[in-house]
Simulated assay, not measured.
Amino acid sequence: MWEDTAFIVASGQAKTTAPDGFVLEPDEAKQLLSKLKGIKETLTEMHRKAVNLCGMKTPSQDPSTLAAHVAMVGDGAAKMGAYSYGGGHIDLQITYVDEFIQRIAEALGMTKSSDQQQAGRLNSFNNRGTTE
């Protein structure tokens, strides 16, 4: 459905050898991740409201009220209303944001893992230097 674009989280020299796509600095990726989590919270609240709107009952049984109600929330069977379509669009946005959050978190995890490995190697090297 969406075009996939490659990105990595890197800093320093690693940025120059990045593949096609775009590169985020670790701090930029953390800021973006934080913003995306806030957006997901907003979308989740919107989804809750859309579900509540779709669960509304018609206030009366006159033909014009029933027609307006069906147009807004659907008929409860096959015909969807405007709120139902809106809820579906919110679902798509949540799916998109979830995947973006997952990819950035994974990229940051790789960066953290690499940093931890390098720190471990430096500590190992420093410990050998002091004991020999």
Rank of each mutant, 00 (worst) to 15 (best):
M1I: 06
M1N: 11
W2S: 13
W2A: 11
W2E: 09
W2Q: 04
E3I: 06
T5S: 03
A6I: 11
F7E: 14
F7G: 12
F7D: 11
V9L: 12
S11C: 13
S11I: 15
G12H: 03
G12Y: 01
Q13N: 05
Q13M: 04
A14C: 03
A14L: 09
A18V: 05
P19Q: 15
P19A: 14
G21I: 02
G21D: 01
F22K: 06
L24T: 07
L24F: 13
E25V: 05
P26S: 11
P26H: 11
P26G: 10
P26M: 06
E28M: 10
E28G: 05
A29C: 08
K30R: 14
K30G: 03
L32Y: 09
L33P: 06
L33D: 11
S34N: 07
K35T: 13
K35V: 13
K37P: 01
G38H: 01
G38P: 01
K40H: 01
K40M: 02
T42V: 14
T42G: 08
L43R: 04
L43I: 02
T44R: 09
M46L: 10
H47R: 14
H47L: 05
R48T: 12
K49S: 04
K49P: 00
K49Y: 04
V51H: 01
V51M: 05
N52M: 10
G55C: 05
G55E: 14
M56V: 13
K57Y: 09
S60F: 05
Q61K: 12
P63S: 13
P63I: 12
P63D: 14
P63V: 13
S64W: 05
S64G: 03
S64M: 09
T65G: 07
A67Y: 02
A67V: 05
A67T: 13
A68K: 15
A68H: 06
V70C: 00
G74T: 08
G74C: 06
D75M: 03
G76F: 13
G76Y: 14
G76E: 15
A77N: 11
A78C: 01
A78Y: 02
M80L: 15
M80T: 10
G81D: 02
Y85M: 12
Y85K: 11
Y85I: 15
G86R: 02
G87C: 02
G88E: 10
G88T: 11
I90D: 00
I90C: 00
I90Q: 00
D91M: 07
D91F: 02
I94R: 14
T95L: 08
Y96K: 10
V97Y: 04
V97L: 03
V97E: 02
D98K: 01
D98E: 15
I101G: 06
Q102S: 13
R103T: 03
A105V: 03
E106I: 12
E106N: 14
L108R: 07
G109F: 01
G109E: 04
M110L: 11
M110W: 01
S113E: 12
S113Q: 11
S114K: 12
D115N: 11
D115A: 12
D115K: 06
D115E: 12
A119C: 00
G120L: 02
R121I: 10
N123S: 12
N123V: 07
N123E: 12
S124K: 08
F125Q: 05
N126E: 08
N126C: 00
G129I: 04
T130M: 10
T130H: 06
T130L: 08
E132D: 07
E132Q: 09
